[in-house]
Design a protein around this nucleic acid. Structure first.
Lengths: 224, 224
DNA sequence: TATTACATGTCGACC
DNA sequence: GGTCGACGTGTAATA
């Protein structure tokens, strides 16, 4: 990794056009060639960047001013004029062992799939990722009366997720072998508007507690 | 901005749980306190981060090992154990003058608004950003028969955009002065699922060619 | 390769 | 603070 702190101006042209006027910024060049330009504030997103693969071409103009021209094969171009280099530091880091995550949607789905009987007595899982023409339903179950129940799982339950489940229900209810299919919208957090929309459409909401799901003890989950 | 290169392990707990095993990484601390941890590859997204506002607490354990504990008021916690510091560099950068952008959806809307007659003969623009209680419709037009047409414009046409237009159409069709209102879903690129859903709902799809719109010559746009 | 849906999405605008 | 829509979204999995 190479870290250059410099007074610079930057132009990007590609998916849109963008310009950065002269200021001191950090220019980060990673081992794979990707490059990002950071200001001293504003979260982690860089002001400009160019992902790998790309090619970096360095040149010097008449005024001894350094320019980096970064291009890729998608017609994107990043031009960095380095007016004054304040610091230039390189360090080899090797390959990162990588990030282990726990608690993303796939994990929630796995846990809930193993505990559908906790949603209501007699509920059984038919299958995960039940396929339809408009995409897979997270969980398809049958309740104690043998009626089909489609479950959509989100980490954050917003209005889009309710729309998505509604589409699945529309679709599934056209299938004579499944009809009638009811819906459960399950999420760690359900936004008020999503809850209102779900209830308006006869979809039940289920608030998931990750720790509770992980712990075996969990009581019955609370449907409402 | 402070740049620390160190052999470190990191744990994040908050929206999910994540763990980074020991390796050499860059730790970036910006002037606003936000912090990000970068590996030497993998585009611009850091492995872990914590946005401002937060509070950073530094401590030393029995083995003289440095730990940074970063917390915020949303119950997120980032723990960085610094086993060995290879480099520690600070530089004041001042406030960045900021990024100027040019050429996104607003531009597409502008171009299409000026060329609604190219969509079909006799089409006239009623207004851009036609207001409704559930948000503004990108373009409201009337066709050669005087019937209202709502147009939703996207750079990338996905299923959500079709839902959005559907909501507008539901709403507009309750208005006796407008009814019947038909819909056109216009985008530079339309995903297959979005197209299927649109057609299922009687919404026409319109593929926009940015260069063609910009060039005055453009033939009639092709509705399908 | 392209298509899809997730993301600690982030970010801004508006209410 | 919550919702909504755009993003140079990026990214991984899947077909």
């Amino acid at each position: 990794m190479r870290l250059v702190i410099a007074n610079c101006t930057v132009d990007y042209s590609g998916r849109l056009d963008a310009h950065l006027s002269e200021a001191v910024r950090l220019i980060m060049v990673k081992a794979d060639g990707c490059i990002s330009i950071h200001a001293d504030g504003g979260a982690y997103k860089p002001l400009n960047w160019m992902n790998a693969p790309n090619s970096i071409h360095e040149s010097t103009d008449d005024d001894d001013e350094l320019t980096w021209l970064v291009t890729n094969d998608k017609n994107e171009k990043l031009t960095i004029k380095l007016h004054e280099i304040i610091s230039d530091f390189s360090q080899d880091m090797g390959i990162d062992p990588g990030l282990q995550k726990d608690g993303v949607e796939a994990h929630l789905q796995e846990l809930l799939a193993a505990n559908v009987d906790k949603i209501s007595d007699g509920m059984v899982l038919v299958r995960r990722e039940y396929p339809t023409d408009i995409g897979p339903v997270d969980l398809l179950c049958r309740d104690d009366k043998g009626e089909a129940v489609a479950i959509e799982i989100k980490r954050r339950g917003e209005i889009d997720g309710v729309e998505q489940l509604s589409r699945y229900l529309d679709y599934l209810n056209r299938d004579g072998n499944l009809r009638p299919v009811s819906g459960i919208f399950a999420a760690q957090e359900i936004k008020p508007q999503a809850r209102v929309l779900a209830e308006d459409r006869g979809i039940k909401c289920l608030l998931l507690d990750y720790d509770e799901l992980r712990g075996i003890e969990s009581d019955e989950l609370k449907l409402f």
